[in-house]
Design a binder for these strands. Structure first.
Length: 372
DNA sequence: AAGAGGTTCAACCGCACAGAC
DNA sequence: CGTCTGTGCGGTTGAACCTCT
């Protein structure tokens, strides 16, 4: 038994809103306030579904909306927040004044995920985005993209996520999460998870460390820091990718600390040295250098595709260093973030919190931390 | 200039949650 | 406690628009 539809389908207008409808809706809400969406269309004299009215108001008609392009600062924040919150668009949007969840979601899907595709492509990682857009250098493939072609390629069962616990990202959806795997790698290391997980090879290199093909055979070996919600997930082919660049001994020196490190991709970061850096202990350093290596590679291989007019990857890298620096505080947000993980991945001392989604206060604290 | 192919974004859909009853 | 209703969220769709040949 499915639940009753939110409104009568017959006699309901769909599709684009007209200026007249907008005017009616705006006037009604201005005089009656928001809410009671179900009865609103009838009361306002609109032949629209209540949900449609709400959506139109929230995403378009509200006076506090900020129109125009996403700014680099906003994009940076989206990337940053997505790395820890996952596809929690409404939560992310709530911290971007004047932006809607729909807008952020669209922006992520149309802009940011593509950039990640290029990153993967530049490293010859098996593609996870179907029908990636061609680069300007590539010839277009013949054949118009049909609507049906835009439907999911895999007939996977639809797994609904529970509120505040996003489903484990499917290979496609997880692309977005991979964008910020560098921060996740840092957090993972900061959590001291290696000790609980056993040798790094077991969870970093995984089964597909050597061949690469096996990345395709098991897309389920994602590791989630935040329980089952798909947030802070690890995708092992990205992890492989990171670590392939940073094998044993592939340690950089950093005599000047963050300042030098900020020169991402230039020669101030020296690979191949066994010296430790002044950033902290090696446990902190290793994932950092993995991340760093990844980005060096990225910049070398595909500069034209990664000119990244918006994402400030250098900033992300710097943030990673900050996380390293913050390791000293064992009660830091980072360790707190990890409280919700699965028993197999995180220290037993936190086991009472395993799998627990963040509550509203925790989310706000996390956001505050991200914004700090 | 025309048309095919690609991209963007507004809108829709279905589900989950919370609260009322 | 179970059911119903209202609401919000995330995923998906498709028309409009843009770009390229």
């Amino acid at each position: 038994m499915g639940r009753a539809p939110c409104c009568e389908k017959v006699g309901i207008k769909r599709g684009r809103w007209t200026a007249e409808e907008d005017q009616i809706l705006s006037s009604y809400i201005q005089s009656n306030g928001e809410g009671s969406w179900r009865s609103l269309p009838k009361n306002a004299g609109l032949k629209r579904c209540g949900k449609s009215c709400r959506l139109r108001w929230v995403n378009y008609l509200r006076s506090d909306l900020r129109r125009g392009n996403i700014t680099p600062e906003e994009e940076e924040l989206v990337v940053k927040m997505h790395s820890t919150l996952g596809n929690r668009w409404s939560l992310i949007a709530s911290h971007l004044p004047g932006r809607t969840d729909n807008e952020i979601k669209n922006y992520w899907n149309s802009h940011l995920s593509r950039k990640l595709y290029y990153i993967r492509k530049s490293h010859d990682v098996p593609a996870v985005i179907m029908n990636p857009p061609p680069t300007s250098q590539e010839k277009r493939r013949p054949g118009r993209t049909s609507r049906s072609a835009m439907k999911p390629k895999i007939d996977k069962p639809k797994i609904r996520k529970t509120k505040k616990t996003s489903a484990p990202p499917d290979p496609d959806a997880n692309v977005a999460v991979k964008a910020v795997v560098r921060e996740e790698a840092l957090m993972m290391e900061l959590s001291g998870a290696e000790g609980e997980l056993g040798p790094r090879d077991d969870y970093y290199y995984g089964a597909c460390h050597e061949g690469g093909d096996c990345c395709n055979t098991n897309n389920n070996n994602l590791m989630s820091i935040n329980g089952d919600d798909g947030v802070l997930s690890f995708d092992d082919d990205i992890i492989d990718l990171l670590l392939d660049e940073s094998g044993p001994g592939n340690v950089f020196t950093s005599s000047a600390g963050d300042e030098e490190l900020s020169h991402l991709g230039d020669s101030t970061i020296t690979k191949g040295s066994s010296e430790t850096s002044n950033l902290g202990n090696l446990g902190c350093l290793q994932p950092c250098l993995s991340v760093e290596s990844f980005f060096n590679y990225e910049h070398q291989v595909n500069d034209e595709a990664l000119t990244d007019e918006f994402i400030d990857w250098e900033y992300v890298w710097q943030e990673g260093n900050k996380l390293c620096d913050e390791r000293e505080g064992s009660d830091s947000m980072v360790s707190w973030l990890l409280n919700g993980d699965d028993e197999t991945t995180i220290g037993k001392s936190n086991s009472e919190n395993f799998g627990k989604p963040l509550d509203h206060e925790e989310e706000n604290a996390l956001v505050a931390w991200l914004l700090s």
